[in-house]
């Protein structure tokens, strides 16, 4: 392990700005979040960034590190440093508020836009819904429900970059899990929401989302599921009706 300082380029500014270089001492087991924290506490208190749990559970610390979206608290410097250089920038495809903090509103709005929320028709007076845990639908849903909305997949997607209306991998993944929720009663609206130019058929299975997801979710798989479902619904109809 080298004893030279890390040369860390950090994006300062907003949509316009520049990379500013800071020298950060190396430590064993150092994460990129440690580096950003050091810069803000010891070198430049005006640096803005987000974090919360710092143990890989909340997804708040997601940033672009050496060109790739990652959770900075779960990225060891030793794994990704190039010589002694690091480049830290805000998440792509989202407006920059300041420095490393992005505006996540469009990300969550698209979640709503894909009807990525649950609505049932039972009340507290009805019996529990009985969902078989080993049923096909439940297993498909389970494969995608661990998503915590960190935005890494969204920031990695080239289709999001080229089609501003594209709902994106996270929203579509969530829509797919709800499509497989037998209690949900908005399936037609959901299918309508994820069809169209901005929906699932815009995905080219590039797989950057699946590669990048820190929770090993495969939005590519979920979107493939939606593609089939919507196509069949448009041509033949689905169990909830025809599109």
């Amino acid at each position: 392990m080298s004893n030279t300082d890390l040369k860390v380029k950090v994006w300062r500014g907003a949509e316009q700005g520049e990379f500013v270089e800071y020298l950060v001492p190396r430590n064993p087991n150092q994460t990129v979040l440690d580096v950003v924290t050091y810069i803000q506490r010891k070198l430049d208190p005006t640096l803005s960034y987000r974090f919360a749990c710092r143990v890989g559970m909340c997804g708040s610390c997601a940033m672009t590190v050496n060109g790739v979206a990652r959770w900075t608290c779960r990225t060891h410097v030793s794994q990704i440093v190039q010589g002694d250089a690091l480049e830290i920038a805000p998440l792509n495809n989202l407006p920059v508020i300041k420095d490393l903090a992005t505006d996540m509103r469009e990300f969550f709005n698209k979640w709503k836009g894909a009807v990525g929320f649950f609505k049932g028709d039972k009340t507290r007076y009805d019996d529990f819904a009985k969902v078989q845990p080993d049923s096909q639908e439940r297993q498909l849903a389970n494969a995608g429900i661990e998503c915590i909305g960190c935005g890494v997949c969204y920031a990695s997607c080239e289709v999001v970059e080229s089609r501003p209306n594209y709902l994106g991998p996270a929203a579509l993944n969530r829509a797919w899990t709800l499509t497989n929720d037998v209690r949900d009663v908005q399936q037609i609206e959901r299918m309508r929401a994820v069809a169209g130019d901005a929906g699932c058929h815009a995905c080219h299975s590039q797989g950057s989302c699946t590669e990048a997801c820190p929770k090993s979710i495969a939005p590519t798989a979920s979107i493939a599921g939606l593609k089939k479902l919507v196509a069949r619904a448009a041509v033949r109809g689905s169990k909830w009706g025809k599109l």
């Binding site: 500014g13 316009q16 060109g67 920038a89 805000p90 990695s156 080239e158 970059e161």
Partner: peptide
């Protein structure tokens, strides 16, 4: 300059 975009590294 303008903020960085997705490049070949991604």
């Amino acid at each position: 300059s303008a903020r960085p975009r997705l490049d070949s590294r991604a």
